[in-house]
Design a protein around this nucleic acid. Sequence first.
DNA 1: CACAATTACATTGCATGCAATTTGTTTTAT
DNA 2: ATAAAACAAATTGCATGCAATGTAATTGTG
Lengths: 143, 143
Amino acid sequence: MEDKYAGLKLGNQLCFPLYACSREIVKKYKPYLDELDLTYTQYITMMVLWERGQINVKELGECLYLDSGTLTPLLKKLETKGWVTRQRAKEDERVLIVTLTDKGRELRDKAAVVPEKMSCCVKLSPDEVKTLYTLLYKMLGDI
Amino acid sequence: MEDKYAGLKLGNQLCFPLYACSREIVKKYKPYLDELDLTYTQYITMMVLWERGQINVKELGECLYLDSGTLTPLLKKLETKGWVTRQRAKEDERVLIVTLTDKGRELRDKAAVVPEKMSCCVKLSPDEVKTLYTLLYKMLGDI
DNA sequence: CACAATTACATTGCATGCAATTTGTTTTAT
DNA sequence: ATAAAACAAATTGCATGCAATGTAATTGTG
C-alpha cells in the first residue's frame, strides 16, 4: 500500500540536495575567498564585473538572480573597498551604473586561482559535471 | 590562445547554477508554505520530524546540514507555534530532544499536497530528475 | 578522585535573500 | 502638457546561515 506521505520525505525531494549542495560548496569557497576579502555573493558579483567592466543594477540582478534589496548594500560594500564605483546614468537617472575600478580589476589576478583550487573539491567526473551543469541550467531556464 | 580568466566566468562554474537553482526553487515553494505558516527551512525541519517523531539537535543538524546557530532559534519558533516541544535528555543534559506534538503531526496532512504541487514547477523529465538527484547526492556525499 | 579535554547546545555578530514599501524618474495615455 | 502608470533603486523588516565564542555537562586520563 502506498504511503500517502512519501512525497514529504527529505530523500524524495529534489530541492533538498540542491539546497544542501549549494550551501556546502559555498562553504568550501570560504577559505579561498577570505584571502581576497570577498564573500561568495560579492565574488559572483565581481565575476560579472570582471567580464563586463560595467553593468547596471537591474541587469546585474538578472545575471545573478538577485534583487536590489540584496545588491544595494552589497554594492555599497564593494564601493567602500574601492573595487567598484556607483553612479547614476545621465540618460536615465533611475539607473545606477556599477563600474569596475582599476583596483577591482587587479583583484582578478588573485581570484584566478580560486576556480582551479575549487575544482579539486568536487569528486564528480568531467562527464558528470557536464551533465549536472546542463540539467541545472535547463532547470534555471524553465523556472 | 587560452583565456587565463576562463575559470572565472559565471557560466563556467558549477557552483553558480546550483546556488541560483536552489534559491529559485525555494522561492517557488513560498506560496504553498505560506499557507502552512512555514518557511522553507522550517518545512524541511518538520519533514524530518514527520518521519522520525523525535530527534536531537545534533542529529537534526546532520540531516539538514545546519548547525545550532541556525537551528536553535528556528526550533524555538516551531515550539512557539506549538508544533514541537524541546526538552533536555535525562541521560545527558547536554542533549536537547525535539519532539513532534499532535498539533505538529496534524500539519502533515496539509503539507502532503506541497510536493505534488511543486513537481509541476520542474520541467525536467523523470529521467532527468533522477539523474540530477543522483549526481547531487553523490556530490553531497563527497563533500 | 581531580582536572583537562570533549561535547552539545546557545549566543553573538555579520552578511545575505527576499517580500513589501517607498522614493525619485521616466514614459504613457489622455 | 499633465496626470497616471511604469520603472529602477533604495529602504525596511524578517528569517536564515554560519563562524566564533560562551556555557554547562560529560568523558577521558593520570
